[in-house]
Design a protein around this nucleic acid. Structure first.
Lengths: 340, 340
DNA sequence: CTGAAAGCGCTAACAA
DNA sequence: TTGTTAGCGCTTTCAG
């Protein structure tokens, strides 16, 4: 009469079933190797005894933990949620666990988090960090653990990553404005120091503008933080510049909505007096009036794809260096032809 | 001459240092038990050989993984981010890993995720699920793994949880409106079936209203989903009701912003023609005009506190059944005295 | 089809 | 201070 609170192990079950531990082990992980009736008997005993396999023992023997490690720059950026969710989704399919860690946007911390994950024997590593310590690649390669980055990646050296066409996405939004007839276009963007993703996006927008002879003056390109207060202040700086642009491209929806709201506070009527286009298609894009025209990068799909690739890599099939997924342009109501 | 790519274990290091594995083990995990110089020698050898301890072996021996399991209803709700971040933050302090899983709001899945976590030998379990399968408690207790819920909790039976005063928070917002002189107050809330948190919040608002003789008519209480389209439709239903209320309390900021925007589309001037109060204080609260008066539950603090408690529990100190943290009222500009 | 036995890589008595 | 040794709970040859 074992206390029900004491955790049963393979030996306890074996004893109860009057068979050897190896038989119980087989009955559980390779049922076909055990006679029908014995298997059933063992199964019920497991249930009765509330047997729960000890995965760490299993992992030690198997050299695999059925776990993947995911590194995020920060958990509080809702933009990462869909990607994480994509990862989680495919992990669920195969019953793998998810070991997450945030590196607070610090490449040095990313390095040490990866180290920890290797020590934990995760079967694969996924990272959303846009930029890494150069040593990271060596660490990863030495570990022989498959990895895939979910970023524009490949900045320093070719490395498996899945991403979307970031600069193309930015160009798309600019071209939309151009197509509608705008020539006086400002750009409101996040701090270029924050991540190369934003810097690239801004640069792409600017170069596309330049290619069409619409290089904006200095007062028409402003960088500001993402929080609502800064975003609105940035928007206002553009809107109050001596000559007001007819349109503004933003590197993110928050900034775009900030423009819309500030413009309305100033008494402008949108989209007549000002066209605005954002990027990311987050919820607020439909919570403003006029609803925001924006473009939605394939965030969830990136998570799904990267996770699939890294799982296959773990089974022997090396992942391609670069996988590019498409953004989708979402036309709503915040863009019209310029009125002047 | 071992290939640098083959992972070094304790034995390899021991061999290279010409000492026993136990000495190396000690040099690493209990440096004070080893002579100064030997320790240094071992340290450099470890570095040179790129030794990385195998935590799963360690865990098997130690019966602890230095990992905590966290269950979230869904990763895509940005409201959970601050709590997760709070958890992560204290985990970082102690060098623990985080094993997350989402149960898609399904208590049955929560049960099985907890099972998996137990199998993985996590040292503690944290869950944000507001409602559980009754069997969950037994499973948890049998496992002897400490756990703390980060929800109003204690619905079915007393169980350690840290939370905020959800109904009190709702009452606070109602009272604010009442204090400003409003009597005709509508309520716009999320689907009461989604989580008891919302149902409770709505009920509290309603009962507070009733206590002040302001029970709203049926057309003044509408439930709708969180997505922007539904939220705006819900807001409109209230605003277009035969008699328009002078204020509306919302169970979330999205709904509140939807009210603001829809009211403006209808040509109303806020807060003169309509007062609105939200809950949660998410970013959009400051991205609308007028800026939203709302209340901010201590989401991050809940994560921090719960994690601390569960970590101490693991060291022997049982967590209190109930810990309640305070919300903070954030007065901004969306509420004024009624104009009629 | 089933059992006995040898580890997976590390830690911790217990000895020396 | 350091080495020897016995496992942690499981999987898996290799025999029976």
């Amino acid at each position: 009469m074992t206390r029900p609170t004491s955790k049963a192990g393979l030996v306890e079950v074996a004893r109860a079933a009057k068979v050897s531990v190896s038989t119980v082990s087989r009955a559980i992980s390779r049922p076909e190797m055990v006679s029908e009736e014995l298997r059933k008997r063992i199964e019920t005993i497991c249930r009765d005894m509330n047997y729960m396999p000890n995965r760490v023992a299993r992992s030690l023997k198997m050299h695999r933990t059925e776990t993947v490690g995911l590194i995020v720059p920060t958990v509080s950026n809702p933009l990462y949620a869909p990607t994480i969710d994509g990862v989680r989704e495919v992990l669920d399919e195969v019953g793998f666990g998810l070991f997450v860690s945030s590196c607070e946007r610090d490449p040095a911390r990313e390095y040490s988090e990866v180290r920890t994950m290797i020590e934990h024997n995760v079967d694969a590593i996924l990272s959303m960090m846009p930029v890494h310590l150069p040593e990271l690649y060596a660490l990863l390669d030495r570990s022989r653990i498959p990895y895939v980055f979910m970023t524009p990646g490949g900045r320093d050296q070719p490395v498996p990553h899945v991403t979307y066409d970031n600069t193309g996405t930015a160009r798309l939004t600019v071209r939309h404005l151009l197509d509608k007839g705008h020539r006086e276009i400002a750009v409101l963007c996040g701090p270029s120091s924050s991540t190369p993703v934003i810097a690239d996006r801004t640069e792409a927008a600017l170069s596309e503008l330049a290619a069409h002879g619409c290089t904006p003056g200095a007062e028409w390109v402003v960088e500001c933080e993402y929080d609502p207060v800064s975003a609105r202040a940035g928007a206002r700086r553009i809107l109050e510049s001596p000559r007001r642009p007819t349109a503004v491209v933003c590197s993110g929806d928050q900034h775009a909505v900030a423009c819309i709201v500030e413009a309305q506070v100033m008494g402008l009527s949108l989209p007549r007096d000002l066209s605005v286009v954002g990027c990311n298609d987050v919820a607020i894009a439909q919570l403003c009036e006029p609803q925001l025209t924006t473009v939605r990068p394939p965030y969830r799909e990136i998570g799904v794809t990267a996770c699939r690739l890294v799982l296959e890599a773990q089974k022997g099939k090396p992942p391609p260096d670069r996988t590019v997924l498409d953004s989708v342009f979402v036309e709503r109501a915040s863009v019209a032809a310029p009125s002047r």
